[in-house]
Design a protein around this nucleic acid. Structure first.
Lengths: 215, 215
DNA sequence: TGTATCGGATACACGAGTGTATCGTAGGAC
DNA sequence: GTCCTACGATACACTCGTGTATCCGATACA
């Protein structure tokens, strides 16, 4: 058996890992669509192409899976932002500052939730974080991490000296994140398609950006 | 029988009305605490001091009650803001402008959700609006109404001519609302008590306000 | 190719919640 | 005070989801 011995000493087969993966992905979809409570274990398994046997062989409970998923989403989001920043840096995007200053922030934020389902999933996690201490801590930590990542870009932008901000970088980051989230949710709620959703969100972000730049 | 004949022709007793009221209030609490899906009809009835017989005698389904409640919350919120504005006007608060300019907006926003439970309930409504067209329309309409109410205050403030804004009033209102909501939710998530919650939220609002005022 | 074992399917027992049909009574009309 | 009826309580039948105990087969290795 092709066991992949994990550091902890736990032993897992490759087959098992893909099963977990498929269950997690399916759960993400179902949670986004109907919410944690309305999502039955069975529905998740159906979506993943398994029966409940597979589920309970891989996860303790639906809640445990949700926690794991939430942690993953948080990491992924931060990671996606980090990667995009590195990529933009390699492409020399930061050299063209400040012409494309906030375009960069928009670009980076857009990577962090790339469709309607992501926004629904994030919202689902958010509301459960409001009722669960453990989840709340994770959510706030991720939020903080995102803020730091964005603040770093803001700092980079500011360092060119050709543009100055009317607030410290961390507050600029917070504001951009808040506005981005509000606009995304409103757009998703209005039932706009993804393209239009991005357009509106970016428009709103741009306005705030204008506001933030010292004249 | 003290029937209160309603315009439509429907006939309801006073007793019935208070039952409905108690069920709606209980439901608001339970929904805020555990969410729509996790809230059983029985739990709502327990809280209200009835059995399910009363529930099904007054409402078709839990969803119908939720819709009704959501509509009520939206109306109440807008109404509370309106009343507070009128009150402030009577008190002559608008005469002291612009010294207390954004203090007024803060004051007004604070009235619109007066505790942790309200924030939870609003969030619960929000996430269901993301998945339900009818609810989404109602939610967005309420949001729009709130925005208009706030914008009117902004206009009043602007009309004094001693203070100018760097964005049109409706966009100022949108921004204040967005920041207010973001800050409230983050504070509630962090488990802060109501006083501290208000303090932080207002602090964040004040910073944005500074930004919005033309120097 | 045989075989041991891991991983997923199946079957079942159970609880929780729902909605309805029926009943008893509180409270208003007279 | 008496009667009536609307209103809420109660009882029941039913569905749906859960979690576990057991079984079967795929898979990795000899």
């Amino acid at each position: 058996m092709t066991d992949t011995r994990v550091a902890g000493g736990a032993t897992t087969t490759r087959r098992r890992e893909t099963t977990r993966r498929r269950l997690l992905d399916a759960a993400a979809q179902v949670f986004a669509e109907v919410g944690l409570d309305a999502a039955s274990v069975e529905a998740i398994c159906d979506r993943a192409g398994f029966t409940r046997g597979a589920f309970y062989s891989n996860f303790e409970t639906k809640d445990q899976l949700f926690l794991e998923l939430a942690g993953e989403v948080a990491l992924d989001r931060v990671e996606a932002v980090r990667r995009r920043i590195a990529e933009l840096d390699r492409e020399g995007a930061f050299a063209d500052l400040p012409a494309n200053a906030f375009a960069i922030v928009q670009d980076v934020l857009d990577v962090s939730a790339d469709d309607r389902l992501s926004i629904l999933l994030m919202s689902e996690i958010r509301i459960h974080a409001l009722r669960n201490r453990e989840l709340a801590a994770a959510y706030l930590a991720q939020d903080e991490e995102m803020r730091r990542a964005i603040a770093r870009i803001i700092d980079d932008i500011g360092r060119t000296k050709t543009v100055r901000f009317r607030l410290p970088s961390d507050q600029v980051a917070r504001l951009m994140l808040t506005v981005w989230e509000g606009a995304s949710v409103r757009a998703a709620m209005a039932g706009l398609d993804y393209a239009e959703m991005c357009r509106r969100t970016n428009e709103e972000l741009a306005r705030v950006a204008q506001l933030l730049i010292e004249v």
